[in-house]
């Protein structure tokens, strides 16, 4: 059977799509880690955070999945929120000391978990 260039192109596109689908799912279910990771660098409001993760990871975390996480993390004392000066329209979140420690540990644990998973599959 002849494999045309088109078939190969289709297959690699499929693989890319499929891979993207898995990445999408991983980021969405572990959005807490990705959100905290973004907040390590700078303080942001929900809107900025969604845009940032979209431009960095090409994954759109919808509003209904992001704001509840911000509020519960704030409630747990991991995030600190304040309205930006002169602009009551955006509430900026930054990591508290406790939040930063947990974020760093979570990022570490999460990365190791991903490595472990890929090792498991290579056996």
């Amino acid at each position: 059977m002849n494999t045309s260039i088109q078939d190969i192109a289709d297959l690699s596109e499929f693989q890319e799509d499929n891979c993207k689908k898995f990445v999408d799912r991983i980021i969405k279910t572990n959005r807490e880690v990705f959100m905290m990771s973004s907040l390590i660098e700078k303080q942001m409001c929900g809107y900025d955070l969604i845009k940032e993760i979209f431009s960095k990871c090409d994954v759109f975390l919808s509003q209904g999945t992001v704001y509840p996480v911000l509020y519960t993390l704030e409630g747990e004392g991991l995030l600190h929120a304040e309205y930006s000066k002169g602009d009551m329209r955006s509430k900026n979140y930054s990591l508290t000391l406790k939040g930063r420690k947990i974020a760093e540990k979570d990022i570490d644990d999460f990365s190791r978990a991903l490595e472990q998973v890929s090792l498991l599959l290579k056996r």
Binding site: G46, Y47, S62, Q63, G64, R89, K91
Partner: peptide
């Protein structure tokens, strides 16, 4: 916060509430 930061047309409130 959501409604200050996003335009209503960018929010599907029923779906958002489910999320």
């Amino acid at each position: 916060d959501m409604r200050l930061e996003w335009m209503d047309s960018e929010l599907d409130l029923i779906k958002t509430t489910e999320e």
